[in-house]
Amino acid sequence: MTDSARAYFDSFLGMAGEPGRRAREFAGKVREDLRSGSEQMREHGTRTASDLGRLIRSEVDAGLTRLGVATHADLDDLNLRLEHSEEQIRDLRIRLAEAEARANAAEKSPGRPAPAETPSSASAATMEPIDDEEEDA
């Protein structure tokens, strides 16, 4: 009896084994499809959110421009221009200090002829000094 029960059991498992394996494979494929689909949806959502952000930013900038208010890009441009102007002022102050030092050296040694001034040092020497709050502190 046990041999016949075992034979029935083995034949039953044999018949159910193939469909069970196929069901497991199908479930694995469905799981992978769901994973990749969810990743694609997340990426699409991220792209959509950034696109919406850019669209809103451009609409706000256009509205501010119509009102005559400076936009973020305008402020960035002004900051770059300001930094460039500050750098030029620093360079001109250095050139002015060098020209004044040469002029003082020429006054101290009257026997020697004054050094020939270059156009850049001549223009720097004629500039008025710029008051700077940082130098006073």
Rank of each mutant, 00 (worst) to 15 (best):
V30R: 08
E32P: 01
E133F: 14
E83G: 01
R90N: 07
L64K: 08
E83D: 14
A105E: 13
E135N: 04
E128Y: 07
R90T: 07
K29C: 03
E107F: 11
R66C: 00
E117G: 05
N79S: 04
R66A: 08
H84L: 07
G111R: 05
T48A: 15
L52G: 10
R35C: 07
G28E: 15
E100H: 11
S38H: 15
G17M: 04
V69N: 00
G37C: 08
R81K: 14
G45F: 08
P19C: 08
G14F: 02
M41N: 10
V30Q: 07
S109C: 03
L78C: 00
P19S: 02
S36A: 11
A125N: 03
A16S: 06
D3T: 12
G20M: 14
H72M: 00
G63L: 05
H72V: 05
A7L: 14
H72F: 02
G68S: 00
R22V: 03
P19Y: 03
T71V: 01
P110N: 04
E87V: 02
F12Q: 11
A114F: 07
L52Y: 13
A99K: 02
R93Q: 12
Y8H: 13
R57F: 06
G20K: 13
S58Q: 12
P115W: 06
L64H: 01
I130P: 00
I130N: 02
R57H: 11
A105R: 11
A5N: 04
M41K: 14
R112H: 09
T46I: 06
S11G: 06
P129L: 05
S11N: 11
F9C: 08
E18R: 12
S85T: 09
E39Q: 15
F12A: 12
I94H: 11
A106K: 03
E128S: 14
E43M: 09
K108I: 07
R6M: 12
S120C: 01
A7F: 10
A62Q: 08
L78E: 04
G20H: 12
G68H: 02
A114H: 10
E83A: 13
K108E: 12
R93M: 05
R112N: 10
D91P: 00
A105S: 10
A23C: 09
T48Y: 09
A5Q: 11
